[in-house]
Design a protein around this nucleic acid. Structure first.
Lengths: 143, 143
DNA sequence: TTTAGTGCAAAGGCTTTGCAGATGT
DNA sequence: ACATCTGCAAAGCCTTTGCACTAAA
């Protein structure tokens, strides 16, 4: 699915909720979709300031939260540092390899692990809904 | 290993680092070891206040950090909320099932998952050191 | 007696909220 | 019109730090 698709998902959600389609909301969404994978609210705000210096930090936060509610974005916090936001749409679930030296993330996924996680949870009488797997270590460059 | 063993690990570390063995340090450690598995700094501070009302919050934080450095404790942050501290000692690595309704944690572990994680990382040229797996869903009671 | 440790309060770092004015619908 | 949205600044929340004093070694 392309950015236009994501846009319509988001604005359908907004409409359904009786919320409004503002100039800021539109540009925040557009820049978010065009941005790198794991962006912070601050980074996004900085990008926005170039073209829309009037947009406030709070508005960026409010809209990122709304994007998460709509299912378009997901908040991830790594190491208790500031939140990062990831596009979920057209972007299937994955886990992260996080380099302890350079801090870069790599996305990975393994169906066998996914399946085992599910089994493991169910074996404990738990109904899994989602999960987060982060593997910390050294990447190829830093190792 | 018992609490006495944990204590000596910690104070050996403290000594080796040229640090000191204070009254506060001793009681913070003792209460931490006696406390529930995933305690927050605030909870620990509250417990301490009962017997040692003079101990400050900052001191609790400072000592929890020291316990982490010594390898005795581990800081875990779940959902970006306040940090929780876990006893690592005599307590092998495990993952967490986290109930979205009641918030309770359950510890789980599966060697097959551990192995696959390792393989997966290495296949990407990554040298894994540690990882964190959190599975969110509903526990038996809340499901 | 020297240097780490402590308690307090203040400062940080990030996120959230209150408010008055602006703006979609 | 009227409720949502926005920008600003202030407040929150938790953690960390600066400082003068206390206390290990």
């Amino acid at each position: 699915m392309d950015a236009a698709g994501a846009k319509s998902i988001f604005f359908n959600y907004v409409k359904k909720k009786g919320l409004r389609n503002t100039r800021q909301r539109e540009v925040i969404l557009a820049k978010f979709l065009a941005a790198e994978k794991h962006i912070t609210a601050e980074d996004l705000h900085n990008i926005l300031k170039k073209t829309n210096p009037d947009i406030g930090y709070a508005t960026v936060h409010r809209n990122l939260k709304l994007m998460c509610d709509s299912g378009l974005a997901e908040e991830i916090k790594i190491g208790g540092k500031k939140a990062r936001y990831e596009q979920k749409f057209g972007h299937e679930h994955h886990d992260h390899l996080i380099c302890l030296k350079c801090g870069r993330f790599t996305e990975v996924k393994d169906d066998r692990i996914e399946r085992l996680q599910d089994e493991l949870a169910r074996a404990k009488g738990f109904s899994p809904q989602r999960h987060k797997l982060e593997i910390y270590g050294l990447c190829r460059k830093c190792g």
